[in-house]
């Protein structure tokens, strides 16, 4: 197992957002986490990435316990995430955002930045090359020196995706990568993710758009009201009556997504 969630529970005041959730994902997969609004998906993403401490349970990444560790430690271990609303610094240029993404930079420690200036310069050169390649891959190369805040919504999503790649993560957690993106750009994003998967990247995706989930995911897990409802191949799981019921019960919009 690349990532295993074991008996994770989360309590907010009197509210139980997650109730002993367990599942696992294998390496070499695109794994999807779906569920109606309020099912606890985002809470779980925040627990896996270290932004929330679970009330109980374990998160194992490559066999290492991760629950309760600070986000930057989890990211350094190779589990990086993006956010539902892209939070990328708007007052930094696209290229600055990309260079920020690179992990374990010597120059990010002020003392070694002072003492090892040659090493820092070499790394900067290398990261710059890599950033240019990645930006070209997603067609953002012309925007390299523009402020990230001036990009369109879809371009911001693409930037967040390639920025995470700069860190060379072992597992990428994408929180709603196509939410609020226009249909044409959704195609671009899906194509990029599939291309990256062929290149050997692992993804853990939280997504509402069922069409995208069907096309991308090898395996999915359905959360409903803080419990795991089903896990398995997308076509099987999405055909199940109880999954359909859960979406319908939670209200129309997402339910339409299941049938789509």
């Amino acid at each position: 197992m690349l990532l295993a969630v074991e008996d994770i529970s989360m309590q907010f005041g009197g509210l139980r957002a997650l109730d002993k959730v367990s599942f696992g994902m294998k390496s070499g997969q695109i794994f999807g986490l779906i569920g109606p609004n309020g099912s606890g998906k985002t809470t779980l993403a925040n627990i896996i990435s270290g932004f929330l401490k679970p009330s109980s349970g374990r998160v194992l990444f490559e066999g290492q316990e991760m629950q309760g560790k600070p986000p930057h430690v989890i990211a350094e271990a190779g589990l990086c995430r993006t956010f539902q609303i892209t939070l990328n610094p708007r007052r930094m240029t696209v290229m600055e955002n990309m260079l920020l993404g690179a992990a374990r930079q010597t120059g990010e420690n002020i003392v070694s930045a002072m003492l090892q200036s040659r090493q820092v310069a070499r790394e900067e050169e290398r990261n710059l090359e890599r950033a240019r390649d990645l930006l070209e891959m997603v067609g953002l190369q012309r925007h390299a020196d523009e402020l990230a805040g001036s990009l369109s919504g879809g371009q911001k999503k693409l930037l967040a995706l390639v920025q995470v790649l700069m860190a060379e993560p072992k597992l990428i957690l994408l929180d709603e990568p196509v939410a609020g993106v226009n249909p044409r750009l959704i195609e671009d994003i899906v194509a990029v993710i599939l291309q990256l998967r062929r290149a050997g990247h692992n993804f853990f995706i939280i997504e509402h758009n069922m069409q995208v989930v069907r096309r991308l995911c090898d395996e999915i897990c359905v959360l409903d009201m803080g419990n795991v409802l089903a896990q398995g191949a997308p076509d099987e799981v999405l055909a199940r009556e109880d999954v359909l019921q859960a979406y319908i019960a939670s209200g129309g919009v997402a339910g339409e997504g299941v049938q789509a």
Binding site: C80, F83, L87, M92, L100, I110
Partner: peptide, 21 residues
């Protein structure tokens, strides 16, 4: 410096900086 770049990122969003390690 690259350290200054991290600072600039923190200015707007400490979440993104943390998520990038």
């Amino acid at each position: 410096s690259p350290f200054g770049r991290v600072l600039k990122a923190i200015r707007e969003s400490d979440e993104v900086a943390q998520a990038l390690g």
